[in-house]
Design a protein around this nucleic acid. Structure first.
Lengths: 194, 194, 194, 194
DNA sequence: AATGAATGAGGTTTCATTCAT
DNA sequence: AATGAATGAAACCTCATTCAT
């Protein structure tokens, strides 16, 4: 029942991901998304209030799944350093494995005004929080510098990874993103280590 | 003559910076920019091919000046670590001191499709190169790790600073950006240090 | 069975009257009417062919009742002048006592193209006819001018009353409509001359 | 110069009058009006804020002219009764001579919600005022009943004439409107009584 | 070089109506 | 008979760009 109900909703999100990634948000007409989703134009507005909402929901849905993967991925890891590596690995590998989603996240999602950016920032928070918790735990365990500014550092880590992904995308994905994990994590660990 | 010619050109860029910062790129009609610049709508097309060009040129002009400031700022500094601190300081302070430009750089400039993003990446290159040279020099001087992946690290540094600035903007500029220099640079130096 | 059938039919008309009066015909979505009537959107199309039909039927039903009231109201009155006064009184008092119906009659009903206007005119005919009969009887009784153009005069009477009602509605119903009966009827009976 | 400037404005109003009269307001697409006016769709929005504005302006312009004609028409007439006849004559003859304008005034103009109706009522005021002055003057001269409710009577007069015009239009203009002047004015001046 | 009136393509969204259940 | 999810046509308006002056 629920799955039936979500059928169109999911189809629209799938179609939107496709179209957004290929044409970019602003060049993606609602009718194009509808066609890709196999529904009528008007149907989209039964599930989403505005075109922008599709972008936001798309992002939220996928990011939610990602957060779960992050949480599940680092949970069993006792070593904080290893956990951080895992975060970076998941960040890079997930985006490398879903290029469409990577495009939407890195390029399209940024094509929005301040208002929307704030909402997106809100959606990112759980991830940022997760990094923060890692940092706090690391400080408690004496693995990271005790004088670390947690709020600043989480930005530095996220920003650094984010740029690596964007750059990889813009340059045409000519190299493996996952191969950058080692260099990134080494930089992080030295940076925040004692 | 040239200066006369530049008069309108500059006025348009100044007007555009104002309008872009206040309304965002997509909400900035050409006529609004023209009014802010004190010229007629059509005049803009004597100096710029398309609306997008204004954004690109605006960015290039200002970034050019910035690059000069960077170069001039670190030239006299012998200590590589200190030079890196200076880079970060200039990055943060320049954007903190010109909020309009900060908005355009961090928010509006990203509101563009892949095509435009590539052009912008091109404009950023001199800055990225400058960071790269710093890294190379640091490695040569034995101040930075010899196994540093220069191409990756420059992204990590830029990305980290970029995110700090964006986050500062989106959060409403409630704290001093320059006050984040120390934490940022410490993170960098430990991260890339021996 | 018939009454059961009429149950929904009536509910829809009641809902429509409510919604039309509050939002106006063009701003009254079928789904809004359906909700007000407590039925599904599709159900409406089991009873009415088009949205417009609801308006027409609504009007016809109520006008039918009104005509009956008019007929019943003037039947026992021997004095033609008094009968005319009664017509005006019913016209004003009925609309004053059902403001929703007044809105629909005076404002919404006019929001229709020529085609529809003709149909509405058709529905008005019995009322116009009733006025006409009154005039004829009055002439026969020697109470009214024998040279009266009946076809014209019925329009003049109806139009005059109609305008008084509309003006009362538009002005915000700040005075009693019934209080205008005396002035109106006096005007009818003796015009404005001495 | 001014005439040049008004050229398009007038053309649009002329086109709109044509299209409104033929198709009705709601069925008159902006593009249809533009074509009839010989301008581009967008041009319309240089002169009118919204489609509705065209209707309002069209009406105001023409009504303004009419008011002038009314004023000029009755000015030289000393006899109040004759002046009233003249008002009715102008009212009927002007609309009979410009059927398109008649359609817009009697049918299309009413197709608007309460908000707009109020604005239209505002535009009608000068005409209503003019009738009022006539009544006042007539009372002063002892030609009309001294106990006349001026505010009510002006509505009765206007409403009566208005209905005659509308009915003439809806019935297909099968008779001369001007031929109704005598009957109408006689009714006004002495009512229906003997 | 400068103007700004004119252009017209383009896209989101609404909502009356249908139809499978 | 009743539902309500789905449809998809339809149209206003915006605004980047042009071009006659």
């Amino acid at each position: 029942m629920t799955s039936r109900k979500n059928e169109k909703y999911d189809a629209i999100l799938r179609g939107a991901l496709e179209v957004f990634a290929e044409h970019g948000f602003h060049r993606s007409q609602v009718s194009k998304i509808a066609r890709a989703a196999g529904v009528a134009d008007g149907t989209i507005y039964l599930y989403f209030k505005r075109k922008e909402d599709i972008l936001i929901c798309l992002f939220r849905e996928r990011l939610g799944e990602l957060i779960d993967k992050f949480t599940a991925g680092i949970e069993p890891i006792a070593d904080i350093r290893e956990a951080l590596r895992q975060v970076c690995y998941i960040h890079y590998s997930e985006l490398e494995n879903d290029v469409n989603f990577a495009y939407v996240t890195q390029i399209e999602l940024r094509q929005s005004d301040l208002e929307l950016r704030k909402e997106i920032g809100e959606a990112f928070k759980p991830y940022i929080k997760l990094i923060e918790q890692l940092l706090v735990k690391g400080i408690e365990q004496g693995v990271f510098r005790p004088d670390l500014d947690v709020k600043l550092t989480r930005l530095l880590l996220f920003g650094a990874m984010d740029e690596v992904v964007t750059s990889w995308l813009i340059s045409g994905r000519k190299y493996s993103l996952v191969s950058q994990v080692e260099g990134t994590v080494t930089f992080f660990l030295q940076g925040i280590g004692k």
